[in-house]
Amino acid sequence: MTKILFVCMGNICRSPMAEAIFRDHFEKEHKSAFQVDSAGTSRWEVGNPPHRGTKKMLSRHGISTQGMRARQIEQQDFYDADYIIGMDRENVEDLAAMAPEGTEQKVYLYLDRTPGMEGQGIPDPWYTGDFDQTYDLIQAGLPYWLTFFEE
């Protein structure tokens, strides 16, 4: 089973949105070979549900956030996950600093797979308030990640 972990700072906006979108896709396509999760680099929001903006955006698209709770990434995640995908450059830098030796190659920047968006981060809607932009950027990268995972 391929294990994918999306990571942002608090695990209430971007990474749970990516988790829910990818999980929804895999369920609809009956692709049980993929397990999707999310986490935050900080512990500020541990135990909290996704941000109301994330929930509202996903609900609008018929995607559930039921049962999702923020958690902080743990060292074991670096061993368990096949792909650890940071939503912006700061997340990737934090992940690279946390990664146990021999796991650094699992860390990716989300938009690096999206042609023309390489090196860009997904802005944090906690600060921008733009959950539409977050959703659109995650959707823009979805087909490229799916191709990458299936290679």
Rank of each mutant, 00 (worst) to 15 (best):
V36H: 00
P123F: 00
E19F: 11
A33E: 08
E93D: 11
M68N: 15
Q139R: 03
E45T: 09
T147G: 12
D136A: 07
I85F: 02
R113E: 13
T114Q: 11
P50G: 10
G53C: 07
H51A: 13
G119K: 03
T114C: 03
W126G: 05
P49R: 06
G86A: 07
W44G: 06
M117S: 14
Q35Y: 02
D136E: 01
N11L: 01
D94V: 12
M87E: 06
A99V: 04
M17L: 11
L137I: 02
W44K: 07
G62A: 14
L137S: 07
A39F: 12
G40I: 15
F131I: 07
V46S: 06
L95S: 03
R71M: 13
S42K: 13
H25R: 11
Y83E: 04
E29Y: 11
S42P: 05
N48C: 13
H51Y: 15
D80L: 08
I12C: 02
G86P: 02
Y110I: 02
T147W: 13
G121V: 13
L5F: 12
M9S: 12
Q66K: 14
L5P: 06
L137W: 06
I84G: 01
I12S: 01
R69K: 14
D112S: 12
S42F: 11
G119R: 05
E74I: 07
H25A: 03
T41I: 07
R113Q: 09
T128A: 02
R43Q: 08
P123G: 00
G86K: 04
G40D: 06
P115D: 01
A20Y: 02
H30L: 14
I21P: 05
Q105R: 09
P100I: 14
R69A: 05
P100N: 09
F78K: 08
K31A: 12
K28Q: 15
F34S: 11
I12A: 03
T54I: 10
E19S: 01
F131C: 08
G53T: 15
L146T: 04
H51L: 10
R14M: 00
M98R: 13
E104G: 03
T103L: 05
D112N: 12
A39C: 13
L5M: 06
D136S: 00
F26Q: 13
V92L: 05
S15A: 05
R43M: 14
T134A: 13
S32N: 11
A96D: 14
S64E: 03
L95N: 02
P125I: 08
T65G: 04
S32G: 12
D37H: 09
G119Y: 10
A18D: 06
D24A: 10
Q75D: 12
N48V: 07
S38Y: 12
R71A: 09
G40R: 10
N11G: 01
G10S: 00
I12V: 07
I63R: 15
Q72E: 12
V107W: 07
